[in-house]
């Protein structure tokens, strides 16, 4: 059995994803995500003894590009859709401390 989805876990995932959820939404999503996981539990019952583990859903491999520069966007284009910019930087609220 997979770990059951309760309302606390939905809130936790919401926080990690920077999504604000109302109590109603938390209840709805807990139920919906629970149903999805239940379906996976059903899949777990299949006999996969002779099936090799799959690390990736796409069977293509080695889609690689040559290390040759191509023009990107101009600074004006790059900043065009930004809600705010400061000189040539994207402007964001003051960040304290460094991330990981």
């Amino acid at each position: 059995m997979s770990q059951p989805i309760d309302e606390n876990m939905v809130r936790h995932i919401g926080t990690l994803s920077r999504i604000e959820l109302t109590d109603d939404e938390v209840r709805t999503f807990a139920k919906q995500l629970g149903d999805v996981l239940e379906y996976f539990d059903k899949l777990q019952q299949l006999d996969t003894e002779d099936v090799a583990p799959m690390a990736h859903a796409v069977e293509l491999t080695n889609v690689l590009a040559d290390d040759a520069p191509r023009n990107g966007l101009s600074t004006e284009q790059a900043l065009a859709n930004a809600p705010q910019h400061e000189r040539d930087f994207f402007r964001v609220p003051k960040v304290l401390g460094e991330g990981s």
Partner: peptide, 17 residues
């Protein structure tokens, strides 16, 4: 790698990608 946050702008943080 990530971009760079610039902290010495007035009242905000600047991001250089």
């Amino acid at each position: 790698d990530a971009g760079k946050n610039i902290h010495d702008l007035p009242g905000c943080t600047g991001v250089d990608l």
